[in-house]
Design a protein around this nucleic acid. Structure first.
Lengths: 217, 217
DNA sequence: CCCTTATGTAAGCAGACGCTTACAATGCTA
DNA sequence: TAGCATTGTAAGCGTCTGCTTACATAAGGG
């Protein structure tokens, strides 16, 4: 069928040996103009590119050749640094997952996460972790496990807000809503949900969940 | 190293030439004991097998060889009857999608759909249409389109319950919750959500959504 | 009976895939 | 300068994929 559809970054054209300068807005860019043999930098570039490709195509449709091409790196390095494609996905998912959890008080956690989905999910600039989750959840078995583990922690934190005996179930229902909204916006793109203002969605959802999460019983 | 990750149904084991009689508990089995050249029956068997395989593995991970094997049919027939793997998915998704919509009054629609997800989604016996949606939504571009179209109709019907000016957005939020719950139960399998009683979940969700869907403003 | 059409089968094609291997640079240290 | 581990590269291996082709049956009609 298609075989084409996405731009094939063939390879570096001529004899120029591989280094292609700093790609630009790297974080806290050192003054070092060229670092031709930088393991950490290469690892980071691979991780970043992998996040982007997984977010765009999902785990199965993404290829290590695509990732290597986007990172400007030989694909053999992916296996040197990460071992396998699956391990790469796991690493991508693991990075940055728990930061929000430890930096946010429980009673602000849900709204923060929801706004994260609403804002971060769509823009191509951000790391789009949620898109990786949503697009890969059906295929790779690593994805459901990671989502389950991460969701477990969110739900536990969220459950502490309610003293109901089924507080965990309630918290998981709230998390499920969050995921569903992300799915509809990012992957399905259903209107008017996909273009609605985060504030409006937040208002509706938080109002509806008031009883579920906050009630004394 | 593994490269495999999921059980590979290698191929038909021995020299036995692929025929393998009527598998037994086929749905509403006609009395016809053997119909060696039955186009409609073959088509139906392929569709049924495709639904099962797509539901279990998702679109990308499912192979036409798997589907053909499960249907007890030569894989070339899949392309004769459906043209392509993607067209097969579309057909699988299209079947039975709108029946519920036309058979259910709007004010019972959401609960009916929700219970459908909660009951049908898990059991391996049923056709598990929801599982196909959830597992394939990230990969095949046919899936998001179908989900969007179907969700559009559900949301429109649901929106008629509210006279709010953003009633459609509200309805889509409700549908998103439904999808998210299905995702968490069927694909992720997060406990205690995955094993919770449909009645309990229904109660929580319907209570929370009362204001969203029913309110006069 | 042959001819045509519908149905099923066996084999394979061309390409993409994850991953490996053999080897060239590079930098560090002694 | 020699030795060595680290980092990067080119090429390909074996397998799987969706899909096609050439051919075997079966039914039906003249």
């Amino acid at each position: 069928m298609d075989t084409s559809e996405h731009t094939r970054h063939k390879d570096r054209p001529g004899g120029s040996p591989a280094h292609q300068d700093r790609p630009g807005g790297s974080p806290a860019s050192e003054d070092v103009p060229q670092r031709p043999r930088d393991a950490q930098g290469t690892r980071a570039r691979i991780l970043h590119a992998a996040g982007a490709v997984f977010a765009e195509r999902g785990y199965e449709a993404a290829t290590v050749r695509d990732i290597a091409g986007r990172a400007g790196v030989n694909q053999a390095l992916i296996f040197r640094y990460f071992g396998s494609k699956k391990a790469l996905l796991t690493e991508v998912m693991a990075q940055g997952g728990k930061e929000q959890l430890s930096n946010t008080p429980a009673d602000r956690l849900f709204e923060t996460a929801l706004r994260g989905v609403l804002v971060e999910g769509g823009k191509p600039g951000t790391d789009r972790l949620m898109a990786v989750y949503l697009r890969s959840i059906g295929s790779a078995d690593a994805a459901p496990e990671t989502v389950r583990a991460l969701g477990e922690e969110y739900a536990t934190a969220l459950a502490s807000l309610s003293s109901a005996d089924d507080s965990k179930l309630r918290a998981q229902l709230a998390m499920a809503w969050l995921l569903g909204i992300g799915l509809m916006r990012v992957v399905v793109g259903q209107e008017p949900l996909a273009s609605a203002e985060p504030d409006e969605i937040c208002g509706h959802v938080l109002t509806a969940l008031e009883g579920l999460l906050g009630e004394r019983n």
